[in-house]
Every structure is written in C-alpha cells, then in structure tokens.
C-alpha cells in the first residue's frame, strides 16, 4: 500500500490543477475573511465578540468548498478523461487499492492545506476585529472544523468523480450538492421537509465550521451526517469502479 501512496503523491503534486485549486482555496479563505470582517466591523454597533469574529472569518469556506471539490473530482476524472486510468490500473490492478491510495493522499494534502488556510483566515479576521478576548480552544476547534469540512467536500468530489468519471458532469453535480441545492431544501414544506433540509449535505456538514446547532443536529452530529453523504457517493463510485470496464 505504501507503494500506491507514494505513486499517488507523485501524481497529485506533479500537475498544475492541484496547485491552482489549492491556491484558490487559500485565496478564498483569506480574501473572504478580510472583506467580510472589514465590512462587518464597520457596520457593527459595538465591539464584536471573539466567538462571532471567528465565525465571520471562516465564511470563505462555503466557496472554498467548491475549489476543494473540484480538486477531488480531478484526482480521478482527469485519469478517465485522458485514458491514463488504464496505465494506473495496469500498475495497480486491485482497483480498491488504487482508490484507497487516492483517498488517503487527497485527505492528507487537503487537511494540511485547509488547516493552514483556515488558521490564516481566522488570523486575518482577528487582526481586523481586534476582539477583547477570544478563547484559544474555540479558535482551534473552528480551524479544525473548517479543514475537516473542506476535506469532506473534496472527498465528496472524489466520490462523485469516481461515480460519474466525466469531469464537467462530476463538477456540476458537486456544485449542485454542495452549494445550490442545500439552501433550496429549506423551501420543502412541513415537518418532513424540515428534517430533510436539516440533514441535506452541507446544511448538516457546515455546522462544524460555525460550531452552531440547528434543530436536532449539533456540529459533530451534523458533520457525521455529511460524512454519510460523502461515503454514499464514494461507495457507489467504488462499486461501479470494480464492476465497470476501465
């Protein structure tokens, strides 16, 4: 397995799309934090409490999630697009080993980069707000939560890429599931509609970024629900990957 991990690490670090999507993630996290913090600060009546400042400074995560999802999609769909998947499967014919290698390497790269980007975003936000006090535990939890969320979004993309194999199709699906559909589900009527909306992908998953709760879900239970979505996409992709011709 270490052979596969080294190989996947070489692959992910040697294409420009990795650099671009990760750079976009960092820029969005820092940029949105700076813009939003400045605007909230100028319109706020009094001093903004530390907890609030941290939440505002991580708002970029909702857009950065798309950049990470795009990277997740490309990790596998670019191989299908070019036909390089055949070379990969000749080298690693156990398809689940190949997929596992991609998941592990992507997760590691994503956690590191997103943790740095999230910490940076919080730093920018705190520098702008200058709150009287901020709990260190809260900062660490938020940065960790944000990087876990972004990584889960990337894995969602990787799962959809494995399932759909076609880059534009997978990216459109990822945008729909991560960004477009979640707010629309709040329009669903009745008790049942509210439950669906609460548990719908990033509606549940993003709670870990803000540390807030909605209805029956808290930050961690919400994230767990999101991971079920991610796992479902990944599992469907894995089953088809095993069964289909390469």
């Amino acid at each position: 397995m270490t052979d596969v991990l080294r190989s996947e690490w070489t692959k992910i670090r040697s294409v420009r799309s990795t650099l671009w999507t990760l750079a976009t993630t960092v820029v969005l996290m820092l940029g949105v934090s700076a813009l939003l913090s400045a605007s909230v600060r100028s319109t706020a009546d009094g001093p903004v409490p530390g907890e609030q400042a941290v939440i505002v400074s991580l708002q970029g995560a909702s857009l950065a999630a798309l950049a990470m999802a795009a990277l997740g999609v490309l990790v596998i769909s670019s191989e299908y697009r070019t036909g390089a998947i055949r070379t990969s499967l000749m080298a690693v014919p156990r398809r689940m080993s190949l997929l596992t290698g991609k998941i592990v390497v992507f997760t590691a790269v994503s956690l590191v980069v997103c943790l740095l980007a999230s910490a940076g975003a919080i730093g920018v936000g705190l520098a702008i707000f200058q709150p009287a006090s901020v709990e260190a535990g809260e900062v660490v939890r938020s940065a960790l939560g944000s990087s876990l969320y972004l990584t889960a979004c990337g894995l969602f993309g990787l799962g959809l890429g494995t399932l759909i194999r076609h880059t534009p199709g997978a990216i459109v699906s990822a945008i729909a599931l991560i960004l477009v559909l979640p707010p629309l589900t709040t329009q669903l009527p009745g008790e049942w509609g509210r439950t669906v909306s609460e548990h719908f992908t990033t509606n549940a998953g993003a709670l870990i970024v803000s540390g807030q709760s909605t209805g029956s879900l808290g930050p961690w239970s919400g994230f767990a629900v999101y991971l079920v979505w991610v796992a479902a996409a990944m599992l469907a992709g894995a089953v088809l990957m095993r069964r289909r011709d390469a």
Binding site: S14, V15, T82, G83
Partner: peptide, 11 residues
C-alpha cells in the same frame, strides 16, 4: 496500449 493516454500536464 494507447500512447496518447497520458496526463498531458505531467513531465
């Protein structure tokens, strides 16, 4: 199999 089936962005 197919010489052109490579990721063009890699060295």
């Amino acid at each position: 199999l197919d010489a052109k089936a490579v990721h063009g962005g890699r060295s």
